[in-house]
């Protein structure tokens, strides 16, 4: 994995650069932590009024939030800046990246890499540690193993969605905000049990934009709840397959976009 090596080497260099402005770094990290915390607070405030939302209590929802927050946070941590693709095309920095011996995807993803990107991950991790012991479930080895597997697959799915969204900008340079409605919108959507959105939304996020596999389907297994859509049991274990398929799709679309750029220069 030459790409992974390049990513790490460059991330280290960006990290050292960011560390030269500790105050700015601290404020920026804090704002990321704050953004994640405001989601947690909103959940806590909501449950201050309702004890149970469509069969899920505060602990369950915090658990769902933590899985979603970790998945989106990790994807954003490693690949979030691919959403800047349109800017790189407009300002010509993409051409600069093309004359360097490192994959463009790695260069864009690692651009301005800073530990502040962890700001979203840490509150989610703390929330997970808080929620896990409060879950009312029978902790079999399979359920225990499912927790880290879900985080991993969720992060992969979110990364793929992020790259797919960014690839749109090869065709429409202003597509960034539209893609945000899926990435950030998806992150907001998966903070709560999908059952509150009704069957139509659940079908869309299962079969069209497979956000249901980021946390919902695996969580149904961990929490041992019935699937409101009545999907078969095995769907709860489909996250790895969905992640692989989506990543392959993202790689294909990205490559197609790059080829198009090389033939049109715009």
């Amino acid at each position: 994995m030459a790409e992974a090596g390049a990513y790490l080497r460059l991330a280290a260099a960006w990290f050292r650069s960011a560390a030269q402005y500790p105050l700015s770094l601290a404020l920026l990290t804090l704002s990321q932590v704050g953004a994640a915390m405001s989601s947690v607070l909103a959940i806590v405030f909501v449950f201050g009024h309702a004890r149970v939302l469509s069969g899920f209590d505060l602990g369950d929802v915090l658990f769902l939030y933590a899985l979603s927050g970790l998945a989106f946070g990790l994807a954003d941590f490693a690949f979030g800046s691919v959403e800047q693709l349109g800017t790189h095309i407009r300002t010509g920095t993409l051409d600069t990246m093309l004359v360097r011996p490192v994959s463009v995807l790695v260069q864009i993803a690692v651009d301005r890499f800073s530990p502040r990107r962890l700001g979203k991950v840490v509150p989610a991790a703390i929330t997970l540690c808080y929620a896990l012991p409060r879950l009312d479930t029978d902790w079999t080895p399979a359920r225990i193993a499912m927790v880290p597997a879900t985080v991993l697959c969720g992060a992969a799915i979110c990364t793929a969605i992020w790259i797919l969204g960014a690839s749109l900008q090869f065709y429409v340079t202003e597509a960034r905000e539209a893609a945000n409605s899926v990435t950030y919108g998806g992150s907001a959507l998966t903070e709560y049990p999908l059952s509150i959105y009704g069957q139509d939304v659940m079908r869309v996020v299962t079969f069209v934009v497979p956000l249901a596999f980021v946390n919902w389907q695996p969580a149904l297994f961990i929490l041992d709840r019935p699937d409101p859509l009545g999907l078969p049991e095995w769907v709860r274990f489909a996250a790895p397959a969905v992640a692989v398929a989506l990543l392959a799709c993202a790689a294909l679309v990205w490559r197609t976009g790059m080829r198009r750029y090389a033939s049109t220069g715009s």
Binding site: A6, R9, L10, A13, W14, R16, S17, R100, V102
Partner: peptide, 16 residues
């Protein structure tokens, strides 16, 4: 937004 020195350091890692 990077000092020249940092830009050069990044390039060193890129070109190994």
């Amino acid at each position: 937004d990077l000092p020249l020195r940092d830009s050069f350091a990044l390039l060193r890692r890129m070109y190994r």
